[in-house]
């Protein structure tokens, strides 16, 4: 059964339309949501988190529609909306103390494990963190409450290659625990490294959403890398 189903999601802005976006996420699989800047990745993710109001479409988690079950669903998902600077002058300890009260499933043991792994100091303030550390902090909050689905908007942007590699390894660990991960990116090598499924979006429309092997089989030409395939598909769409 799909953990997340997005069906015909549509959001109309004056200069951009997210047009009937549909895909699903499965437990224990990592889905890479790829597309160039402005393709509609963040709009889709914001709609999935009820941050924006779609014009049409349905989003459901665990078989329940998001609208009407928002609080219960958010208990079971984790998210990171890029390297957003929340409460820049508060310490990480203060933010965590307040946040964990909202999650009955919060695990202090998991929190400390990941905090040590990410080398985050509780006495630091978000304004003192690098972009990569801010992403890790968001991820830490998501992981400590045992999220079954992780939705991450450009988590690898701004990370150095080492930090990116570590983060993708964490995704691998989560996958083994049955967590479904959706991460948006415009870095194709992230997909090569860890994605099981590829959701390719261009100009507000889903070009294809398939397991990685099926995607390569369907779209790649001989001796073409995944990056070359995606770049070519994007150029072809631009030309039409």
């Amino acid at each position: 059964m799909s953990l997340v189903t997005v069906k015909d999601l549509t959001k109309i802005y004056p200069s951009f339309t997210l047009d009937s976006v549909s895909f699903s996420l499965e437990a224990g699989r990592i889905a890479g949501f790829i597309g160039r800047n402005g393709a509609g990745k963040t709009t889709t993710i914001k709609a999935m988190l009820n941050l924006i109001h779609p014009n049409a479409g349905e989003i459901s988690y665990f078989g329940l529609p998001l609208i009407g079950n928002e609080a219960a669903i958010k208990q079971r998902i984790g998210y990171s909306t890029g390297a957003v600077n929340y409460y820049p002058k508060k310490t990480i300890r203060e933010i965590v103390d307040v946040t964990k009260a909202f999650y009955p499933t919060w695990s202090d043991a998991d929190y400390h494990t990941y905090r040590e792994l990410f080398e985050l100091e509780e006495s630091k303030r978000p304004r003192e963190l690098s972009e990569g550390m801010k992403v890790k902090f968001n991820l830490l909050l998501a992981l400590a409450h045992g999220a079954e689905i992780l939705i991450l908007d450009e988590p690898t942007s701004g990370l150095d290659p080492f930090a990116r590699d570590e983060l993708l390894d964490v995704f691998g660990e989560l996958k083994k625990r049955g967590v479904a991960v959706l991460f948006s990116t415009h870095i194709t090598s992230d997909l090569e490294k860890c994605a099981d499924d590829i959701i390719f979006i261009s100009r507000g429309r889903i070009v294809d959403a398939l397991p990685k092997e099926a995607f390569v089989e369907k779209h790649a030409r001989e001796n073409e890398t995944l990056e070359e395939t995606i770049l070519r598909l994007e150029k072809e769409r631009k030309a039409t």
């Binding site: 988190l49 009820n50 941050l51 609080a71 219960a72 958010k74 909306t81 929340y86 999650y103």
Partner: peptide, 10 residues
């Protein structure tokens, strides 16, 4: 944004 992402209704 932070509050809207907590496990509560928006």
């Amino acid at each position: 944004l932070y509050t809207a992402l907590l496990p509560i209704r928006k």
